[in-house]
């Protein structure tokens, strides 16, 4: 942390605008985490920029006292890419939702990740369209009855982590709106990572899709249904820490610990494996047969798009600094002489 930067507090990141999410919305908790984390980062406030698309989550910039740009539906990654390329000194955070990033903005989402532009993406996944009042989203489960699917949705949902990993994402994580310390820790990791950091946040929409994640957030179920990924540690979960995850061929399976099996039989989590296959396997784990993993799925070093673009420009400007005169007067030119005039007088 620079000594010249004044110490900022959480309230320094709260804007003067009234927050207009529904009372009880998971977004409040995420907003609080981001404000806390930004204060903790010790970076100058004016260097922080939040770029969002459209949807409930995308109102986020209005509530942050940083630079903020509420753009158009699904396109935040493209605005953020242009901004980061033009201004590598800025810290750019994209806030998006499951409709914004997975549906209308799917294309920009995958291309941001494959390019590995150095920005952070928070995807608020509530598995429903909230702002348009309750239609199924691309992450809604099959068969979901909503206003636009009265007989149940026949869409197969996207797995955002699988999509991100398939796009070559260098940093992929998942957390849950009410798991404050876990969420903050993940956000700090995202800021520290060079390249696109993608975090899926399970977020409860208490109006249109209430309790979508209660199977893993309610205290009695939590320990049995959540697998905390910890780098270098065996994957163990359960109220009694009595269950583990084992690799069997190309499958993951749950094993009971205690009898013939112990922690040494469990898969040891390695988040910086170059091969994304393990992370992809983990991303498939879901109830009812598996716990839901949260934490860092992948964190690998890769060159960043903005860094490479800058390097090319630096090399070109150093080798042969452009001169406007050469540009205009270069190429094949010819001269038209003034007509010979009779001397005056």
């Amino acid at each position: 942390m620079s000594t010249e930067t004044p110490t900022l507090k959480k309230k320094d990141f709260q804007s003067d605008q009234d927050v207009r999410w529904c009372p009880g919305c998971g977004d409040y908790s995420i907003l609080s985490a981001v404000q806390t984390v930004f204060a903790k980062l010790g970076l100058p406030k004016e260097k922080m920029v939040i770029v969002s698309g459209i949807g409930c989550s995308s109102r986020f910039p209005y509530y942050m006292d940083t630079y903020g740009f509420h753009t158009i539906h699904g396109r935040a990654p493209a605005f953020a890419s242009g901004l980061k390329m033009a201004r590598p000194d800025l810290h750019v955070w994209v806030v998006t939702g499951d409709g914004d990033a997975m549906s209308i903005g799917g294309n920009h989402f995958i291309h941001l990740l494959r390019r590995n532009v150095d920005v952070n993406v928070l995807l608020f996944n509530n598995r429903i369209y909230g702002l348009t009042k309750g239609q199924y989203s691309p992450t809604s489960e099959e068969g979901k009855r909503t206003k636009s699917s009265p007989m149940g949705s026949v869409d197969h949902p996207f797995n955002p982590l699988g999509l991100a990993l398939g796009s070559g994402a260098s940093f992929v994580g998942r957390t849950v709106d009410i798991f404050q310390p876990h969420m903050r820790e993940l956000m700090l990791r995202a800021q520290a990572h060079r390249g696109t950091s993608f975090i899926e946040i399970y977020q409860n929409c208490n109006i249109f899709n209430d309790k979508a994640f209660s199977y893993m957030t309610d205290k009695p179920n939590r320990a049995d249904n959540v697998l905390y990924l910890e780098h270098g540690k065996p994957m163990i979960f359960g109220a009694e820490q009595n269950k583990g995850i084992r690799l069997n061929g190309l499958q993951l399976e749950v094993i009971e610990l205690g009898g013939s099996m112990g922690p040494e039989d469990c898969l040891v989590w390695d988040e910086d494996r170059q091969n994304p296959a393990f992370a992809f396997l983990l991303a498939q784990l879901a109830p009812p047969n598996f716990p839901t993993p949260i934490g860092v799925f992948r964190a690998v070093e890769q060159s960043t798009y903005d860094g490479d673009v800058l390097r090319q420009i630096d090399a070109a400007t150093t080798q042969n600094p452009g001169k406007l005169e050469d540009l205009i007067y270069g190429g094949d030119t010819w001269t038209v002489e003034p007509p010979q005039e009779q001397p005056a007088g």
Binding site: F79, M85, G322
Partner: peptide, 29 residues
């Protein structure tokens, strides 16, 4: 014309192309 400090971004589609240009303009380009 990179030697003139020009950044060219071949975007994934026409929409991303203009959005990135707006993002850059927002940043002062």
């Amino acid at each position: 014309y990179k030697n003139f400090g020009v950044t060219t971004f071949q975007a994934e589609d026409e929409i991303a192309a203009i959005c990135a240009a707006i993002g850059a303009a927002y940043g002062g380009a």
